[in-house]
Protein backbone atom coordinates (compact mmCIF):
# COMPACT_ATOMS: atom_id res chain seq x y z
CA UNK A 1 0.00 0.00 0.00
CA UNK A 2 2.61 2.44 1.13
CA UNK A 3 4.91 1.36 -1.65
CA UNK A 4 2.19 1.78 -4.24
CA UNK A 5 1.57 5.34 -3.08
CA UNK A 6 5.24 6.10 -3.29
CA UNK A 7 5.38 4.67 -6.76
CA UNK A 8 2.36 6.72 -7.75
CA UNK A 9 3.92 9.95 -6.56
CA UNK A 10 7.10 9.13 -8.45
CA UNK A 11 5.09 8.52 -11.58
CA UNK A 12 3.16 11.74 -11.02
CA UNK A 13 6.37 13.63 -10.66
CA UNK A 14 7.80 12.14 -13.81
CA UNK A 15 4.67 12.96 -15.76
CA UNK A 16 4.71 16.54 -14.48
CA UNK A 17 8.40 16.78 -15.27
CA UNK A 18 7.81 15.57 -18.82
CA UNK A 19 4.93 18.01 -19.26
CA UNK A 20 7.03 20.91 -18.00
CA UNK A 21 9.93 19.87 -20.21
CA UNK A 22 7.67 19.63 -23.25
CA UNK A 23 6.18 23.03 -22.46
CA UNK A 24 9.64 24.56 -22.25
CA UNK A 25 10.75 22.91 -25.49
CA UNK A 26 7.68 24.15 -27.34
CA UNK A 27 8.22 27.62 -25.93
CA UNK A 28 11.86 27.57 -26.98
CA UNK A 29 10.91 26.37 -30.45
CA UNK A 30 8.20 29.03 -30.88
CA UNK A 31 10.45 31.85 -29.70
CA UNK A 32 13.31 30.50 -31.79
CA UNK A 33 11.20 30.36 -34.92
CA UNK A 34 9.83 33.86 -34.33
CA UNK A 35 13.35 35.11 -33.77
CA UNK A 36 14.64 33.45 -36.95
CA UNK A 37 11.74 34.92 -38.89
CA UNK A 38 12.43 38.39 -37.50
CA UNK A 39 16.11 38.09 -38.36
CA UNK A 40 15.37 36.96 -41.89
CA UNK A 41 12.86 39.80 -42.37
CA UNK A 42 15.26 42.38 -40.96
CA UNK A 43 18.08 41.17 -43.20
CA UNK A 44 15.80 41.18 -46.21
CA UNK A 45 14.44 44.68 -45.55
CA UNK A 46 17.82 46.22 -44.87
CA UNK A 47 19.40 44.41 -47.85
CA UNK A 48 22.00 42.88 -45.60
CA UNK A 49 24.00 40.05 -47.09
CA UNK A 50 27.35 38.62 -46.08
CA UNK A 51 28.57 39.13 -49.62
CA UNK A 52 27.97 42.87 -49.34
CA UNK A 53 29.58 42.94 -45.92
CA UNK A 54 32.59 41.04 -47.23
CA UNK A 55 32.86 43.44 -50.14
CA UNK A 56 32.69 46.43 -47.81
CA UNK A 57 35.27 45.23 -45.29
CA UNK A 58 38.42 46.28 -47.20
CA UNK A 59 36.90 49.69 -47.92
CA UNK A 60 36.22 50.20 -44.23
CA UNK A 61 39.82 49.27 -43.41
CA UNK A 62 41.04 51.63 -46.10
CA UNK A 63 38.92 54.45 -44.70
CA UNK A 64 40.19 53.88 -41.18
CA UNK A 65 43.81 53.92 -42.31
CA UNK A 66 43.31 57.19 -44.17
CA UNK A 67 42.00 58.95 -41.07
CA UNK A 68 45.20 58.14 -39.18
CA UNK A 69 47.55 61.13 -39.01
CA UNK A 70 51.12 60.96 -40.24
CA UNK A 71 53.19 61.03 -37.10
CA UNK A 72 56.96 60.55 -37.09
CA UNK A 73 58.96 60.18 -33.94
CA UNK A 74 61.60 62.65 -35.21
CA UNK A 75 59.16 65.50 -35.78
CA UNK A 76 56.41 64.57 -33.35
CA UNK A 77 55.52 68.04 -31.96
CA UNK A 78 55.36 69.50 -35.44
CA UNK A 79 53.28 66.60 -36.74
CA UNK A 80 50.82 66.93 -33.89
CA UNK A 81 50.59 70.67 -34.44
CA UNK A 82 49.89 70.00 -38.12
CA UNK A 83 47.29 67.36 -37.25
CA UNK A 84 45.57 69.68 -34.76
CA UNK A 85 45.92 72.85 -36.86
CA UNK A 86 42.32 73.78 -36.02
CA UNK A 87 42.66 73.14 -32.29
CA UNK A 88 41.61 76.64 -31.14
CA UNK A 89 38.51 76.64 -33.31
CA UNK A 90 37.57 73.10 -32.32
CA UNK A 91 38.08 73.85 -28.65
CA UNK A 92 35.70 76.80 -28.92
CA UNK A 93 33.11 74.63 -30.66
CA UNK A 94 33.56 71.94 -28.04
CA UNK A 95 32.93 74.59 -25.39
CA UNK A 96 29.71 75.56 -27.20
CA UNK A 97 28.74 71.89 -27.27
CA UNK A 98 29.25 71.58 -23.52
CA UNK A 99 27.26 74.76 -22.87
CA UNK A 100 24.37 73.51 -25.00
CA UNK A 101 24.33 70.20 -23.13
CA UNK A 102 24.58 71.77 -19.67
CA UNK A 103 21.91 74.40 -20.29
CA UNK A 104 19.59 71.84 -21.86
CA UNK A 105 20.08 69.60 -18.84
CA UNK A 106 19.34 72.49 -16.48
CA UNK A 107 16.20 73.59 -18.32
CA UNK A 108 15.18 69.98 -18.83
CA UNK A 109 15.51 69.31 -15.11
CA UNK A 110 13.50 72.41 -14.20
CA UNK A 111 10.79 71.63 -16.75
CA UNK A 112 10.77 67.97 -15.82
CA UNK A 113 10.45 68.81 -12.14
CA UNK A 114 7.49 71.09 -12.78
CA UNK A 115 5.79 68.52 -14.97
CA UNK A 116 6.55 65.36 -12.97
CA UNK A 117 4.20 65.98 -10.04
CA UNK A 118 0.99 66.29 -12.07
CA UNK A 119 2.28 63.35 -14.16
CA UNK A 120 2.40 60.98 -11.17
CA UNK A 121 -0.66 58.77 -10.68
CA UNK A 122 -0.41 58.80 -6.88
CA UNK A 123 -0.09 62.57 -6.49
CA UNK A 124 -3.06 63.95 -8.42
CA UNK A 125 -6.72 63.12 -8.01
CA UNK A 126 -7.70 64.37 -11.45
CA UNK A 127 -7.13 61.47 -13.86
CA UNK A 128 -7.39 63.64 -16.98
CA UNK A 129 -4.65 65.97 -15.72
CA UNK A 130 -2.39 63.00 -14.96
CA UNK A 131 -3.12 61.35 -18.30
CA UNK A 132 -2.43 64.49 -20.34
CA UNK A 133 0.80 65.33 -18.49
CA UNK A 134 2.14 61.78 -18.60
CA UNK A 135 1.37 61.22 -22.28
CA UNK A 136 2.81 64.65 -23.11
CA UNK A 137 6.06 63.68 -21.39
CA UNK A 138 6.18 60.31 -23.13
CA UNK A 139 5.53 61.71 -26.57
CA UNK A 140 8.03 64.56 -26.28
CA UNK A 141 10.71 62.11 -25.18
CA UNK A 142 10.00 59.64 -27.98
CA UNK A 143 10.75 62.11 -30.77
CA UNK A 144 14.55 62.09 -31.28
CA UNK A 145 16.49 65.30 -30.51
CA UNK A 146 17.73 65.50 -34.08
CA UNK A 147 14.16 65.73 -35.38
CA UNK A 148 13.47 68.70 -33.09
CA UNK A 149 16.77 70.19 -34.19
CA UNK A 150 15.80 69.88 -37.86
CA UNK A 151 12.50 71.65 -37.22
CA UNK A 152 13.94 74.35 -34.96
CA UNK A 153 16.66 75.15 -37.46
CA UNK A 154 13.88 76.06 -39.87
CA UNK A 155 12.00 78.10 -37.24
CA UNK A 156 14.82 79.77 -35.30
CA UNK A 157 17.60 79.76 -37.89
CA UNK A 158 20.90 77.90 -38.04
CA UNK A 159 22.92 78.03 -34.83
CA UNK A 160 23.27 76.76 -31.29
CA UNK A 161 19.94 78.21 -30.15
CA UNK A 162 18.02 75.68 -32.26
CA UNK A 163 20.12 72.89 -30.76
CA UNK A 164 19.61 74.15 -27.22
CA UNK A 165 15.84 74.27 -27.70
CA UNK A 166 15.80 70.81 -29.30
CA UNK A 167 17.73 69.21 -26.45
CA UNK A 168 15.67 71.11 -23.88
CA UNK A 169 12.33 69.87 -25.21
CA UNK A 170 13.54 66.29 -25.40
CA UNK A 171 15.07 66.51 -21.90
CA UNK A 172 11.89 67.92 -20.37
CA UNK A 173 9.89 64.94 -21.62
CA UNK A 174 12.50 62.37 -20.66
CA UNK A 175 13.10 63.86 -17.21
CA UNK A 176 9.40 64.31 -16.43
CA UNK A 177 8.81 60.65 -17.21
CA UNK A 178 11.73 59.39 -15.10
CA UNK A 179 10.99 61.74 -12.20
CA UNK A 180 7.31 60.81 -12.14
CA UNK A 181 8.21 57.13 -12.08
CA UNK A 182 10.35 57.87 -9.03
CA UNK A 183 7.43 59.80 -7.51
CA UNK A 184 5.16 56.82 -7.91
CA UNK A 185 7.43 54.61 -5.81
CA UNK A 186 7.56 56.77 -2.68
CA UNK A 187 6.36 56.09 0.82
CA UNK A 188 2.96 57.78 1.24
CA UNK A 189 3.03 58.14 5.02
CA UNK A 190 4.90 61.47 5.14
CA UNK A 191 2.32 62.88 2.70
CA UNK A 192 -0.50 61.86 5.06
CA UNK A 193 1.28 63.57 7.92
CA UNK A 194 1.71 66.78 5.98
CA UNK A 195 -1.89 66.76 4.81
CA UNK A 196 -3.06 66.18 8.38
CA UNK A 197 -1.11 69.22 9.56
CA UNK A 198 -2.84 71.36 6.95
CA UNK A 199 -0.29 71.53 4.15
CA UNK A 200 -1.61 72.43 0.71
CA UNK A 201 -0.76 70.43 -2.43
CA UNK A 202 2.41 72.42 -3.18
CA UNK A 203 3.67 72.03 0.36
CA UNK A 204 3.01 68.29 0.25
CA UNK A 205 5.07 68.05 -2.94
CA UNK A 206 7.85 70.24 -1.56
CA UNK A 207 8.19 68.72 1.91
CA UNK A 208 6.72 65.25 1.43
CA UNK A 209 7.68 64.06 -2.05
CA UNK A 210 10.77 66.00 -3.02
CA UNK A 211 13.01 64.94 -0.11
CA UNK A 212 12.24 61.29 -0.87
CA UNK A 213 12.98 61.44 -4.59
CA UNK A 214 15.84 63.94 -4.59
CA UNK A 215 18.66 61.32 -4.75
CA UNK A 216 16.90 59.60 -7.66
CA UNK A 217 16.29 62.89 -9.43
CA UNK A 218 19.92 63.92 -9.05
CA UNK A 219 21.10 60.61 -10.47
CA UNK A 220 18.74 60.83 -13.42
CA UNK A 221 19.80 64.41 -14.08
CA UNK A 222 23.48 63.49 -14.17
CA UNK A 223 22.62 60.61 -16.48
CA UNK A 224 20.72 63.04 -18.73
CA UNK A 225 23.74 65.34 -18.79
CA UNK A 226 25.88 62.49 -20.14
CA UNK A 227 23.31 61.73 -22.83
CA UNK A 228 22.89 65.41 -23.70
CA UNK A 229 26.60 65.88 -24.25
CA UNK A 230 26.56 63.02 -26.74
CA UNK A 231 23.57 64.53 -28.50
CA UNK A 232 24.98 68.06 -28.44
CA UNK A 233 28.05 66.75 -30.22
CA UNK A 234 25.97 65.57 -33.20
CA UNK A 235 23.13 68.04 -33.59
CA UNK A 236 25.57 70.21 -35.55
CA UNK A 237 25.03 67.66 -38.35
CA UNK A 238 21.75 69.42 -39.11
CA UNK A 239 23.07 72.92 -38.41
CA UNK A 240 22.08 73.26 -34.77
CA UNK A 241 25.43 74.34 -33.37
CA UNK A 242 28.38 72.76 -31.61
CA UNK A 243 31.27 70.66 -32.85
CA UNK A 244 28.98 68.43 -34.97
CA UNK A 245 28.96 70.90 -37.84
CA UNK A 246 32.74 70.80 -38.13
CA UNK A 247 32.77 67.01 -37.94
CA UNK A 248 30.07 66.82 -40.59
CA UNK A 249 32.15 68.95 -42.93
CA UNK A 250 35.28 66.94 -42.27
CA UNK A 251 33.52 63.67 -43.08
CA UNK A 252 31.56 65.02 -46.06
CA UNK A 253 34.59 66.60 -47.71
CA UNK A 254 36.95 63.74 -46.83
CA UNK A 255 39.32 65.75 -44.63
CA UNK A 256 40.46 62.43 -43.23
CA UNK A 257 42.92 63.62 -40.62
CA UNK A 258 40.50 66.22 -39.30
CA UNK A 259 38.00 63.44 -38.66
CA UNK A 260 40.32 61.57 -36.33
CA UNK A 261 41.44 64.79 -34.64
CA UNK A 262 37.90 65.97 -33.89
CA UNK A 263 36.55 62.54 -32.96
CA UNK A 264 39.41 62.03 -30.50
CA UNK A 265 38.71 65.41 -28.88
CA UNK A 266 35.01 64.63 -28.58
CA UNK A 267 35.52 61.11 -27.25
CA UNK A 268 38.09 62.32 -24.73
CA UNK A 269 35.71 65.00 -23.43
CA UNK A 270 32.77 62.61 -23.28
CA UNK A 271 34.80 59.97 -21.44
CA UNK A 272 36.04 62.53 -18.93
CA UNK A 273 32.54 63.74 -18.17
CA UNK A 274 31.11 60.21 -18.09
CA UNK A 275 33.76 59.18 -15.60
CA UNK A 276 33.12 62.14 -13.30
CA UNK A 277 29.37 61.81 -13.55
CA UNK A 278 29.49 58.05 -12.98
CA UNK A 279 31.55 58.57 -9.81
CA UNK A 280 29.05 61.13 -8.56
CA UNK A 281 26.10 58.91 -9.39
CA UNK A 282 27.57 55.91 -7.62
CA UNK A 283 28.36 58.04 -4.61
CA UNK A 284 24.76 59.28 -4.45
CA UNK A 285 23.38 55.75 -4.86
CA UNK A 286 25.86 54.47 -2.27
CA UNK A 287 24.80 57.05 0.28
CA UNK A 288 21.20 56.22 -0.46
CA UNK A 289 21.77 52.54 0.28
CA UNK A 290 23.44 53.28 3.61
CA UNK A 291 20.51 55.14 5.10
Amino acid sequence: MHEAMQQKSVLDFEAAFRRERLRQRIQFLVFGLLFALATWLAADISQFTFARLWEATPRMGDYLVRTLPELHLMSLPGDIAYWYYGFDRWLKLLFDTLLIALLATLFGAIGGLLLCFPASRNLVKNYTLYFVCRRFAEITRTVPEVVYALIFVVAFGVGPMAGLLALTIHSIGAQAKLYSEANENIDENPLEGLRASGANWFQVMRFGVLPQVLPNITTYTLWRMELNIRSAAIIGFVGAGGIGQELYHAISFNYYEDISAIVLMVVFTISLIDLTSERLRHRIIGRENLT
Binding site: R59, M60, Y63, I234, Y248, I251, V263, V266, V267, S271
Partner: peptide, 14 residues
Protein backbone atom coordinates in the same frame (compact mmCIF):
# COMPACT_ATOMS: atom_id res chain seq x y z
CA UNK B 1 31.76 57.53 -27.25
CA UNK B 2 31.18 58.06 -30.97
CA UNK B 3 27.49 58.45 -31.67
CA UNK B 4 25.79 56.11 -34.14
CA UNK B 5 24.98 59.10 -36.38
CA UNK B 6 28.72 59.78 -36.76
CA UNK B 7 29.39 56.12 -37.49
CA UNK B 8 26.53 56.21 -40.01
CA UNK B 9 28.05 59.14 -41.87
CA UNK B 10 31.44 57.41 -41.91
CA UNK B 11 29.95 54.13 -43.16
CA UNK B 12 28.01 55.97 -45.85
CA UNK B 13 31.35 57.27 -47.13
CA UNK B 14 32.97 53.85 -46.76
Amino acid sequence: GVDSLVWALVYVRA
